[in-house]
């Protein structure tokens, strides 16, 4: 079973009070499953971070895997050991 860690930044951290959460995923789980798991565990994310449907990220939030690549398709699968950063598109300031 793949184990991943989701790191929370910005609003996600602000509303959950968590810096990161380890998740043990079922075999074959997708990033969408990660969104669903987070929505169930942290309902405060629904609205600003996760769409009310509970299975999609609210723009401008995104998943960045290992600070290297951004998940463009939620129906792809994370790999064991991935660190998934839940963050904003950074702009302005």
């Amino acid at each position: 079973m793949p184990k991943v860690v989701v790191e929370f930044y910005g609003t996600a951290r602000h509303v959950t009070g968590q810096k990161e959460v380890p998740l043990e995923l079922k075999e074959g789980s997708t990033f969408r499953d990660v969104v669903k798991t987070l929505a169930a565990r942290y309902p405060a994310l629904i609205g600003d971070v996760i769409k009310p449907s509970g299975d999609e990220l609210q723009m401008p939030n995104m998943f960045n895997v290992n600070a290297r690549r951004v998940v463009q398709d939620l129906d792809t699968q994370p790999e064991d050991g991935d660190r998934i950063l839940l963050m904003f598109v950074t702009a302005g300031g």
């Binding site: 790191e7 930044y9 910005g10 609003t11 602000h14 600003d48 600070a67 950063l85 963050m87 904003f88 950074t90 302005g92 300031g93």
Partner: peptide
């Protein structure tokens, strides 16, 4: 909510 200083940790990471 956090303003643009929220960028600090994102960019650091």
């Amino acid at each position: 909510i956090l303003g643009t200083p929220a960028n600090v940790l994102n960019l650091n990471r």
